[in-house]
Design a protein around this nucleic acid. Structure first.
Lengths: 305, 305
DNA sequence: ACATAAATATGCATTATTTGCATGTTAGGC
DNA sequence: GCCTAACATGCAAATAATGCATATTTATGT
C-alpha cells in the first residue's frame, strides 16, 4: 500500500476518467492503465467498472474515499514531520474543516490570517473526524456546521467554541428539469439525495427536513452520498432534490442552472462553528483564533453597512 | 511514502537494530541497509544515528513513532476495507488498546471471545488516540489505564465504561546494577526514565510518583520515552529506574534480571478500563462486551478460590 | 447501420529499481 | 590489540515500471 496508490485512485475518482487522471498524475495513459490494474491485483479487488466509458468507481470503493483522503493527508504530514528536524520548528497550524465548509467559507477564513505567515495545513473531513482530529491534537482548529436543537457537540467540555458564520442548507434542483420534478410531485413523490445517517448532514436531514417533507409528499431517496459536491452534481442533472449549503450553490442559482426551492421545501439555517481545545493553547493557535474571531466581526460590520 | 517504509522504520525502532529488523522483514542485511538509506534520501532526513552500534533512532524521529503506527494500521485497514466487497459483510470488531496494555492483558481478554469467530482487529495506540478512535467510531472497544484521583476520562459522557482489571505501575531496575543505583542514591540522586507529559503515564508520573520521590532524593530524568517497552529496556540495562506495568516486568523480576523496587519507591495501582460508545451498540459489540465483562468475573472467582 | 472520436488495453523495447552474495569498514567488548 | 557484531559498498542478476505504437471497445452523431 502506497501513498501513490491512494493518490492514483483519488485522481480517477475526482477527475472522472483514467485519461484525465493520468494527465494530472503526469503519467502516460498506458502506464496509468497498467498501474491501476496492478493496484487492483495487489489489493485483490476491482476498483473501477470499465464496462462504461469513462470508467466508473466500483460502488463499494466510494465509501472509502474520505478515508483515503484522510490517510493521504496523514502520510504527507508524516513525511513533513519526519523532515522537520529538531532544530527547525516551523510555525504551523492544522485546520480541520468539514467537507462542505472547505468548499465554501474556509478559504476566506484562512485568508484572514494569511499575513501572519503561518504554515497552514487544511484537512477536509466529515464532521466527526474534524472533531476527532481536534481531540487527538492532530489538528488545531476545526470548522464545522451546527444546527439549533441538534445534539451538543461531542467533546464540547474540552473545546472552546465560537460561532463564526451562518450557512443555510437549501433544497436545490436543476433549473431546466422542473417539469420532471413537478411530474413526480403530482404523483405525491419527492425524489431526494440523502446524506448517510452517520454523517452530520444526514442527521439534519432525518431530524429536521424529512419529517417536514412528509407533509408535502412521499420522500423517495434515490441516492445516498456523504459528499455535498456529489449531491450538488446530481441535483444539477435533475436526478433528485439535494440539500446544499447555500454558498455552494449560489453561482448556479444565479445562472439559473439550479433553482432554490426554499419557497416550497424546508431549509435549515446552520451556524458555522470554529472549535479548538481549551487547554494547551499555543501562541500560534491563539493568534489565528483571534484573527478568525476578528474577521467575523469585520464581516458582520460590512453586512450592516 | 509507502506502508513498507513505515514498517521498516518501526521494525528498527522496535527491534533495536538493523540486523534484527532485516530478519523480521525477511530482507538481507545489505538490502535493508540500502532501503533505509533510500527512504532517508526520499524523505530528506536522517532517520538513524549510525555512529553507534547498534544504530539508534534520531531523536526527532522518536516523537513520530505513534503516528507511524497509527497510519500503518490505517493503511492496512484501508486495504482490507477496499477488499471487502459490498456483498461480504464480515463480522468484525476493532479494539484500540493502550500500548502497555496491548503487551500485557489484551491477548488474554481477546482470548475470552475468540470462540465467537469474530474478525478482531487490534490497534495499539496511546491512551488519547485509543479514546479518539472510539469517539470517531474507528474502533469499537478501547482498553486503557486509569488511576484513582486522575482526571475524568475525556468524552466519558458518551462512553460506557467498565473496570476489567488491575495493573500496578512499579519501579524496576537492573538486578545486576544495583550498586550503580545505590551509588547515585548515596549522592541524593534518582536517575529515572520519564514518560512524556502529554501521555497518560507521564501525567501519572508527574502527579503521583515524582512528588513522592522528591522526599527520597533528587529526581534526574535521564531519558524520556512514551514506550513502556523501551523504558523497560533501559531499566534492564541499568540506565535508570523505569515505571512499568507489573505484568510486563513479571518474568524478568522472577528471573532476577529486574528488581522490583516497590519496597523503597512509590508504585501506583491502576485500573484497567474497557470503554465503548454508549449509543449505536451493534450486536457484535454487545456480544464481545458481555464476554469481556464475564471474563472479569470468572477471573475474580478464580483468584478467590 | 456506419463513421468517428474518446477512452481503455496490450505488445514491445527500454529504462529504472531492487535484490542477494561477497566483501569491506567500524564500533564495542574483553 | 584482537575478535565479533553491526552497518556499508561493489557487482551482477532479477524484477518492476515506463513510453510509444497499436489494438479494442464504448458512446455519440448522422
Amino acid at each position: 500500500m502506497r501513498l501513490e496508490w491512494i493518490e492514483d485512485i483519488l485522481a480517477v475518482a475526482e477527475n472522472g476518467s483514467f485519461q484525465t487522471a493520468c494527465e494530472k498524475r503526469n503519467v502516460s495513459q498506458p502506464a496509468f492503465s497498467r498501474r491501476i490494474r496492478q493496484i487492483e491485483h495487489a489489493l485483490g479487488t476491482t476498483l473501477f467498472d470499465r464496462s462504461t466509458r469513462p470508467a466508473r468507481l466500483s460502488p463499494h470503493i466510494h465509501d472509502q474515499l474520505d478515508r483515503m483522503r484522510d490517510l493521504s493527508a496523514g502520510l504527507r504530514d508524516l513525511a513533513a514531520a519526519l523532515q522537520d528536524s529538531e532544530g527547525t520548528r516551523r510555525r504551523r497550524i492544522v485546520i480541520a474543516s468539514q467537507h462542505a465548509i472547505a468548499a465554501t467559507s474556509t478559504p476566506e477564513i484562512i485568508g484572514s490570517f494569511a499575513d501572519l505567515d503561518i504554515d497552514t495545513r487544511l484537512r477536509s473531513a466529515n464532521r466527526d473526524d474534524c472533531l476527532a482530529q481536534i481531540m487527538t491534537r492532530r489538528a488545531d482548529i476545526a470548522f464545522i456546521h451546527d444546527v439549533m436543537g441538534a445534539e451538543e457537540i461531542p467533546g464540547s467540555d474540552f473545546l472552546e467554541i465560537a460561532t463564526i458564520g451562518e450557512e443555510t442548507l437549501i433544497p436545490v434542483y436543476a433549473g431546466d428539469k422542473l417539469d420532471v420534478l413537478n411530474e413526480a410531485y403530482s404523483h405525491g413523490e419527492l425524489p431526494v439525495i440523502a446524506y448517510p445517517s452517520d454523517v452530520f448532514l444526514g442527521q439534519v436531514q432525518r431530524r429536521m427536513i424529512f419529517p417536514r417533507l412528509m407533509r408535502v409528499g412521499r420522500v423517495r431517496p434515490r441516492l445516498e452520498t456523504a459528499l455535498t459536491l456529489a449531491a450538488l452534481e446530481f441535483a444539477r442533472t435533475g436526478f433528485a432534490i439535494a440539500w446544499i449549503p447555500e454558498p455552494l450553490a449560489r453561482d448556479e442559482i444565479r445562472d439559473g442552472r439550479l433553482v432554490d426551492l426554499r419557497a416550497t421545501l424546508p431549509a435549515v439555517p446552520m451556524t458555522l462553528i470554529a472549535a479548538r481545545l481549551s487547554d494547551t493553547v499555543t501562541p500560534i493557535v491563539s493568534d489565528v483564533w483571534e484573527r478568525i474571531i476578528a474577521s467575523v466581526h469585520s464581516r458582520t460590520a460590512l453586512a450592516i453597512s
